[in-house]
């Protein structure tokens, strides 16, 4: 039976991966998990970043993932294959050809998925919501997430930060991924850095290559700080 749960999400039938009782001490008792949205164009490395963050943070934070990608089982399989997260911690949302609608204008299915994960798994510290690949104007609603990361890549050309758009300009963190490819595509990272600063003022930007840093350590540190500062104000 494909439909057993009661929310708007698709369960992934990967069976015996239930992690059992969670070993981590609760960080955020009686509070919902911090929700971080990860947006950006198709292929920029959003799923790779989710996997890297799971690798870096799964041992210290209770985390789960919601994906809006149309290749839902592929994303879940990827996380599974890499041994970073059991299938029970991944939910997929269908977006009806409109990935930006599902994260911005009508967030109901994503909210259902987030709430269902917390209901099924118990208290969590962090939920990552990966948007379906979209364009430079797609950002998350504040009704869905607490903070958002926008991922672009060097292979898309060094003009991307200059083009701007709400993702590049307003995301809480801009990640410029695949720096390992810069020499191959003739992208000038210093141009991207200068343009990102001009667009973003004081908001942070991180250059990284997940190919070279499998745990996305700088982004993981930023995420960790978000979770910690939230606990501190709780």
């Amino acid at each position: 039976m494909p439909h057993k749960d009661t929310d708007g999400t698709v369960p992934h039938g990967h069976g015996p991966m239930d992690p059992g009782p969670d070993p981590h001490a609760p960080l955020t008792e009686n509070r919902r998990a911090l929700r971080i949205g990860i947006g950006g164009p198709v292929g920029s490395g959003k799923t790779a970043l989710v996997a890297a963050l799971c690798r870096s943070l799964a041992a210290e934070l209770r985390l789960a993932v919601v994906t809006n990608d149309i290749y839902t089982t592929e994303d879940a399989d990827f996380l599974l294959r890499n041994g970073v997260l059991p299938a029970s911690h991944v939910r997929a949302v269908e977006t009806g050809c409109c990935p930006h609608t599902a994260i911005r204008d009508d967030i109901s299915a994503n909210l259902d998925a987030v709430e269902d994960l917390e209901a099924q798994l118990g208290p969590l510290d962090l939920i990552l919501v990966e948007s379906g690949g979209d364009n430079l104007t797609a950002t998350f609603s504040k009704g869905l997430i607490d903070a958002q990361i926008f991922v672009v890549d060097v292979a898309g050309g060094d003009k991307v930060p200059r083009k701007g758009g709400p993702g590049v300009t307003t995301a809480d963190l801009l990640v410029i991924n695949k720096t390992d490819l810069a020499p191959l595509v003739g992208a000038d990272l210093s141009v991207m850095d200068r343009d990102a600063r001009a667009r973003r003022g004081d908001l942070p930007t991180i250059f990284q290559s997940i190919a070279e840093d499998k745990g996305a350590s700088q982004v993981a540190a930023w995420v960790r700080a978000q979770v910690t500062s939230r606990v501190a104000v709780a």
């Binding site: 949302v93 009806g96 599902a102 204008d105 009508d106 109901s108 299915a109």
Partner: peptide
């Protein structure tokens, strides 16, 4: 445009 999930069906 009512945010009631309809767009995905």
């Amino acid at each position: 445009r009512l945010p009631a999930g309809g767009h995905a069906h």
